[in-house]
Amino acid sequence: MSPPIPRRRLLRLGLAGLGALPLAGCKTFDFLADPNDPTRDVLVSANRLTKEVQRSLQGRRALATEYTMADLRQGQKPNGTTDPQDPAYLALKAQGFRDYRLSVTGAVARPVTFSLADLHALPQQSQITRHDCVEGWSAIAKWSGVRLAHVLTRVQPTAQARFLMFECFDTMEQGLSGAVKYYETIDMVDALHPQTILAVGMNDQPLPVANGAPVRLRVERQLGYKMAKYVRAIHVIPDFRQIEGGRGGYWEDRGYAWYAGI
């Protein structure tokens, strides 16, 4: 090999590029926030990889860590909606949720409507787990309720059942076609997980309104936004692409990943 000639032109280009990177400022990459940007689609594909890798390493039954009451630092920080003002919810709340009914319908052999007493009559379980918010904070609390798998056994999902859609009472915003309510979807892997429960109690008390009374979901291997509060109905569905923004949840429709294991 002959002595290398300093490739000045290349160097100058490289240096200029390197210098431009911070100078350009991060506005340069604001286009990535556009949900229809093709580059964003490429970046989003990493989320699918994360889901596949985590799911294959977890298996169906790997458990989230459970703690003790000594690990409770402060009360469970309420987040998102903390006091729904929807008339249907206020009416139920005024009666101490006596007339609350949770309907489980859709791709099931036997649709069932549960009262709170019905839910309490099913086998109960408690777990002290860490709640990780997408924002970055964590809180530990004791959650009590019925395993979602027991509820599904009662309604017998059919062969078309692939997802569970949780319809909630709380309005997040006013859209062009009316109130946009919170909703979430999970698949059968999480629905049947032994720690996935419909919580009706928190820290040995009835579930407070701020934390999702009377019924909220706990999906312990994912972030908080998957754990729908103020659950009004569960729809067993083959697909969520026809619902709202089509991405499987209120926050998913606003750019957050459907799989929230990270």
Partner: peptide, 24 residues
């Protein structure tokens, strides 16, 4: 500040999309 973040405005969802792609 805005000059130090991607995107420049507050957008946690996009920040996470960018972060996890480059983390891989």
């Amino acid at each position: 500040p805005a000059w130090a973040t991607i995107p420049s405005f507050q957008d946690l969802a996009t920040g996470r999309v960018v972060h996890f792609f480059f983390a891989w």
